[in-house]
Amino acid sequence: MTNPDRSRSRNDPARELELNSETLRGWVKKYQKQQEPAPDAELTVNERARLKELERRNRELEMEVAFLKKAAAYFAKDPR
């Protein structure tokens, strides 16, 4: 199934709204720029909570890997 909006030119919406295409283009660029997080932006509360959870999970997985390495080394040297 094809998207009918893909075949429209960029000027069509501006014409439909009776706007200058450059005005609409400027608004779109301004909106897109606002959606990009600033490089020095603070994390949101949700992002902080997710980061904390991911860091906890990462520590847990690192401990599991360390344990499995020790277990593998132990069983590799035990000739049963």
Rank of each mutant, 00 (worst) to 15 (best):
D12Q: 04
M63D: 15
K77H: 08
V28A: 04
P13I: 08
L24K: 07
L17F: 01
L43W: 04
Y31L: 11
E60V: 05
E62F: 00
D78K: 15
W27M: 13
Q35M: 05
N20G: 01
L68R: 13
N20T: 02
L19Q: 00
R25C: 00
V45N: 10
A41F: 00
A73R: 12
R15E: 15
N58I: 05
M1L: 12
Q34Y: 13
Q35P: 01
A76D: 14
K29E: 09
R10Y: 02
R57L: 08
E18Q: 07
E47N: 04
N3R: 01
K52V: 12
N3C: 02
N58L: 11
E16V: 04
D5N: 00
Q35N: 05
L51N: 06
R6T: 01
E22V: 01
F67H: 05
A66P: 00
K29P: 00
R25E: 06
S9W: 02
L24G: 07
E62L: 06
E53G: 05
K29Y: 06
L43R: 12
P37A: 10
V28N: 04
Y74D: 07
R8K: 02
T23E: 09
L51W: 08
S21T: 08
N3L: 03
P37D: 08
E47Q: 14
V45G: 04
V28P: 02
L24Q: 07
A71E: 13
S21M: 02
L24D: 03
T2P: 01
R6M: 03
F67I: 12
E42K: 14
R50M: 02
S9L: 05
F75P: 01
Q34T: 11
E53F: 02
N58E: 09
V65S: 00
K70L: 10
R80A: 15
E18K: 14
L43H: 05
A14N: 08
E42N: 09
D78R: 15
E22A: 10
Y74K: 07
D5R: 01
R57M: 10
A49R: 12
S9D: 01
Y31R: 15
Q35H: 04
E36C: 09
R8S: 05
Y74R: 08
M1E: 07
P79I: 09
E47K: 09
D78S: 12
K30H: 11
L17Q: 04
A41N: 02
Q34H: 13
R8A: 05
A38K: 13
A71K: 14
E64D: 13
A41C: 04
D5P: 01
Y74F: 06
T23Q: 03
A38H: 11
